[in-house]
Design a binder for these strands. Sequence first.
DNA 1: CTTGACCTTGTCGCAGCGTCAGGGTTTCTA
DNA 2: TAGAAACCCTGACGCTGCGACAAGGTCAAG
Lengths: 253, 253
Amino acid sequence: MRIGEIAALVGVTPRAVRHYHQSGLLPEPARRANGYREYGVRDAVLLARVRRLTELGLGLDEVRGVLADDEGRGLVEVLEELAEDLARQESEIRARRERLSALLDEARAGRMPADGPLSPELTSLLAGLGELPESPMAAKDRQILALMDVVVPEEERARLMGLMEGAAEHAHEVYPLLDALSGAEADDPRVAEAARVLAACLPDELGVHMPSGAPDEAGTSLADALFADLAPAQSAAVHLAMRLVRERREQNR
Amino acid sequence: MRIGEIAALVGVTPRAVRHYHQSGLLPEPARRANGYREYGVRDAVLLARVRRLTELGLGLDEVRGVLADDEGRGLVEVLEELAEDLARQESEIRARRERLSALLDEARAGRMPADGPLSPELTSLLAGLGELPESPMAAKDRQILALMDVVVPEEERARLMGLMEGAAEHAHEVYPLLDALSGAEADDPRVAEAARVLAACLPDELGVHMPSGAPDEAGTSLADALFADLAPAQSAAVHLAMRLVRERREQNR
DNA sequence: CTTGACCTTGTCGCAGCGTCAGGGTTTCTA
DNA sequence: TAGAAACCCTGACGCTGCGACAAGGTCAAG
């Protein structure tokens, strides 16, 4: 047989057969006078074994290993390992499928957050928050929440969102005050008022974390970046609000 | 933030972040005086979006596409496509897992065919055939059956194995006769007897196919190879047996 | 004699980074 | 104050299992 024939016979491409030769999986057969490879029954039998194994999902080096030891013992081990692997993959895929269908339901239910798919917790928080008026600060805040959604590990997320829940109700009071400070300097007189209102709607527990609420090591540079992203007066107001929350927490303890 | 910080924050490696820069997924941020990349909040937000999307299983180019159109419409399409894809993958994996567990059961039940895992049909055929005495011809035959297992498409397999079923009962009579011919020439007097016995235990329907029983286009070269793999007298016996079967079929019709 | 279907070797490409190699910078520590 | 640890930089190769060329040679049929 020539390479195309044996390949068609076993159900692979000639390229694959040559690849198996190159990788030492299959011995090179004798050549005809014209240089063509000439395959016999033994080659076909071997190639069929290779195909059965790769069809099961074994990698080529695993196949090589299984073909190497003529005992079937190694094969069983490999198959067991493979079974574990497939089980893991399947559960991963199923998890992703569930997340996906939930997201698609959300999306088709009308609202798809323009910042991409978010965690269920944050999605419900934003849904409860409703439509805010046109506000640069609100937009920025939503982006930061979306960031936190990735930063905060899954087990913390529910708790953190719970904390935010209370703050969300007063959002419509705070954002205008902060928006008004967008062009102001740090010593603007409106800073104190904005900080007072902001602090009033933040829960005590928030002060325990970094200013941002993220309990991670990179917190300080993240906090720096967050403040650098604000106008001077806004930054001052948030700083002040954090101090107020901390002080309030001390008193309440 | 430096690259390691933003990467840890979002939960990817610095290498991945640089990769995203290279592939245009994420804009290169400004550099510090020392050449270090300096990341801000906007970068973190973007990177977080990228991570959420890749976590869902999107490819990087799909992510790029989704980030490009600020409408969420394209996103939904991509997600639907991805959901289909995942469904397909899951069923594939489940099918393989079922095959695997069946094979592992077989293997742990004692007998694992040394030629690797076979189809259920062939496995049961071989099991019913039981332990044959030490016979080169029987060994070769099993290998060829294993080859057929791959060659024959799934829907034909059951029928073909059914045909073999009858032949298997007389295997212990035929193999010794063929083994005895291993060193003989084609004009050996024992050829006729071997062919007669062999033909007697093959069903009529077998003659309808190629000598090998494989109904495919490459049949002739496969048949050539099969006969080339036998000793001259064995080849002659099988040829003769096939002719006997064909003649018998003509008569019975 | 040409056309088309084969065969040959060799090379690049693919996804998504991991992993050196070979350098500089910053920072903590003894 | 020096040295080590822990960062950062660019650039390049590696991995899986082949697919897809390129640039030829070979063979059967029209």
